[in-house]
Write a protein that binds this DNA or RNA. Structure first.
Lengths: 252, 252
DNA sequence: ACTGACGTACTTGTATGGTAGCCGACCGAC
DNA sequence: GTCGGTCGGCTACCATACAAGTACGTCAGT
């Protein structure tokens, strides 16, 4: 009850309601707080967030453009299930852009860049020690973003980030993440080392295999949580949760 | 006058008003019918297209997300000027994704794929003969899209297309295009030939230099039409065209 | 002539009302 | 028991009304 009442209060800075709602919803979707396949409605969200339908609707349209929700006119809006095709596409985009950036980064990297990347690595180890998955995901995002920035193509990061969102949504479920985290950090460190050495091909290979590992994780998760993935066969019939009001209405 | 009255009539198929308006505006922007730096207003567009502000507004939000318009709250919405940074970023994204796709395409290409690509090449020559720039741009788009599809990553095309839009907007001005077209077609043909031969590295190189040529074109155009580009220095003060009503009101 | 305050007309942002269309449950016919 | 029609409730879509804020033209004061 009375959940996100503080949304309006935080409007102080330049961001308007639409942008705030967009961030909140995106965070909830990527964080799996809103499960793939579940229905969301403009009305319910507007009521919950304490705003009108307009900014909610506009946010949902943007999220649909990002592939995070599917809007079926006159039927409803649903958190998109993870699609085989989208995952493969996202992986391809990530790998192509991040590796291409890394190859350029080798020529431009400075000592300061390496220091900043190393600082992120130690922070990741800290998160690992505290089993802080939420924090680790954020630091992982920061690391890869920083890596692209070294090449001077930071402005291409939003594209990678959008592709990454599709993958991260599944990775959140990787329960033995506590075991994985140190492995991932080790791979990060290897990339930084090779980048500093200027070994272009091996750095590229290290980053590529790191990204592929993430990709294979998703495939494992698919076996464990098939309900989050789309069957590709009958994705055109999203079910509307029928017995919803009956329970809350009680009887008389 | 009575301009785009036929917008509602064409709603027959699944696309709703928002998507139609989005396509119309995007086409006008990329086709330079709406000049970079010029102001557009939700009200004016709605009146012209014969729809309400809502779908127009939602389309503009999407276009802002694509970087084609800049929305300044309470000030106005402006067709975005071409920014040095965005052009470089778009070029990087295109090159990384298209070349990565090509490298995978070499292993998967079929005789049918080559035939379809060759068919597009002959169509491009036809457009060249007729000096049909509009048609050539469309066929160029088709060619690059088809090329990516060969690799099996057709779903990544929208990302490339979005980046490409930033470049094409400038390329439309390249007046000596009639001279360039045969050159570009030749490069296309070289890529297809090398793809068919399976020569991965040379195909990659050919495509890369083709894309770089497009990039250098933009730089030449920048010298000729600086008004379309942003100064990067004072982009924060878009001017509102004051004497607007006076001119259009002028009746007979 | 120049400067500064003010008002008007415009802008986008947000809220709300009404419409077409789809789903799912209910109910009568066979 | 099974099938087909009907009706209620929900949805997103579009239109419209109101609010908050900015820029520019005007005009008084210097």
């Amino acid at each position: 009850m009375a959940p996100a009442e503080g949304l309006h209060a935080a409007r102080s800075r330049g961001r308007n309601t639409r942008q705030l709602v967009h961030e909140v919803l995106r965070s909830r979707i990527v964080g799996l707080e809103l499960a793939p396949g579940s229905a969301v409605s403009e009305n319910d969200l507007a009521a919950e967030l304490g705003v009108s339908r307009t900014p909610v609707r506009e946010s949902l349209i943007l999220l649909a453009d990002e592939g995070l929700v599917d809007i079926y006119p006159q039927m409803g809006t649903f958190i998109s299930r993870i699609r085989e095709r989208d995952v493969a596409s996202a992986q391809f985009i990530r790998e192509a852009l991040e590796c291409a950036a890394l190859r350029e980064a080798v020529e431009k990297v400075t000592a300061r860049d390496v220091a900043e990347l190393r600082a992120l690595l130690t922070a990741q180890e800290e998160a690992d020690r505290h089993s802080d998955m939420q924090g680790f995901f954020q630091l992982d995002e920061d690391f890869h973003a920083r890596l692209m920035a070294v090449s001077g193509h930071a402005s291409a990061w939003p594209v990678v980030s959008q592709a990454k969102a599709q993958l991260d949504r599944a990775r959140r479920l990787s329960l033995p993440m506590t075991q994985q985290m140190s492995l991932l950090i080790g791979q990060h460190r290897e990339v930084v080392d090779l980048l500093e050495e200027g070994d272009l091909d091996r750095a590229d290979g290290a980053l590529r295999s790191h990204l592929r590992l993430v990709f294979s994780d998703v495939e494992k998760i698919r076996a464990k949580h098939p309900e989050l993935f789309s069957d590709e066969d009958a994705p055109l019939r999203p079910r509307r949760d029928s017995a919803r009001r009956t329970a809350s209405r009680g009887d008389g």
